[in-house]
Design a binder for these strands. Sequence first.
DNA 1: ACCTGAACACCGTTCAAGT
DNA 2: ACCTGAACACCGTTCAAGT
Lengths: 222, 222
Amino acid sequence: MTKQSRMKTAGKRAAKAPRPYHHGDLRRALIAAATELLEREGAEALSFRAVARTAGVSQSAPYNHFTGKEDLLATVAEAGFRALGTAQAETAARASAGEDRLIALGLSYIGFAADHPQLYRLMFGVGVPDWHAYPQVSEAKQASFAPIRAALGEDFPSTNDATALEHAALAAWGLAHGLAMLRIEGSLARRDAPDKPLPEEAALRLFARGLTHALAGAAGKL
Amino acid sequence: MTKQSRMKTAGKRAAKAPRPYHHGDLRRALIAAATELLEREGAEALSFRAVARTAGVSQSAPYNHFTGKEDLLATVAEAGFRALGTAQAETAARASAGEDRLIALGLSYIGFAADHPQLYRLMFGVGVPDWHAYPQVSEAKQASFAPIRAALGEDFPSTNDATALEHAALAAWGLAHGLAMLRIEGSLARRDAPDKPLPEEAALRLFARGLTHALAGAAGKL
DNA sequence: ACCTGAACACCGTTCAAGT
DNA sequence: ACCTGAACACCGTTCAAGT
């Protein structure tokens, strides 16, 4: 119960000190604490009280900044979608046009999930029963997928057929998301040798190759 | 605290009576109660105590049949994979060979998820941190995907190339799983008209069409 | 405006005790 | 062998009270 000894250097937060520090940006501190605890314990093991404890406040303080636990998780998920969207946009800018760009985007998508498995799981429904209550999350989710959609429109011969583009986008999203989930859950084999490519890459390549042919055929027929 | 009035008709269980009935098959009753509660409340809201309550026993009785909540959930998930596998096998048997069979299997896969969303979510990692602790679940998972794998081997010109078949199987699994998840989470549009086909069907068709072409090309090259 | 601390109704799990 | 009931250490959330 010792009082804080320095007031001038209060800006430097001692991360583990359980002493109260209401520095006017508790909201941000709570989001940071939740993000950190999320990867360590998973969404279902993460408790609202532990987040408050990590931030050094009482169990009821967070209710001044979030309506409840779900609201905090939704905020973290939204940030995750924004980060994924940024990473995807950077990948799209770096890659050269063509099938390779689609494959690079797919690998980047799966890589994000592999790097932040618990965050990715949270983003896609784990722990939050109804995302419709958080429209900003839905919007960020759509935005995170925009680069793949754009690549399909620019790099594949389907631009003139909006319906075919829509179907291709759905297939690409489904494939990327499905491979990411399978990777996270451990359903996929680890890479045998460090130089051998991931099986996901071959699957993505097969998909991209087929898409070029199928869309070319569809353009002639539809 | 009244004693049970009839002993001869004890086989008929009054579903809501909170009186004790230890009829020798509590394990099955707990699985049934958990399965029922799962769809109604979701895996994260489902409590072990509520399962015991629904089965009419004390909160600690289930520990005689399961090591804990996670063990019960894993058992339910395993049963889910077996049911999915059966449904997939039936679909494969009914459909005629070719691209249509792959599409039918994909639609059946997504349909299962749409019919039992909470069960499907549980099966793919929600609520159970590490499936590796339950090898029977992993085995049932692999078995549930066998029909799609078999259809790829029989209906597509990749049978002689084991590697290409493996990649195609991974892509197909990823696509089916990804579309199922997106459907469950509400990321996909509801069908506008009851006669119009689901967008998933068009995406699956695009994938199957492309796979035929890509594998034919690969067979000549590799 | 923001935070604390007590309180409530829940959890999962353990364990002595009953039959 | 199987079940009960009390107990423990947790939850999420509410609310009066403090500053």
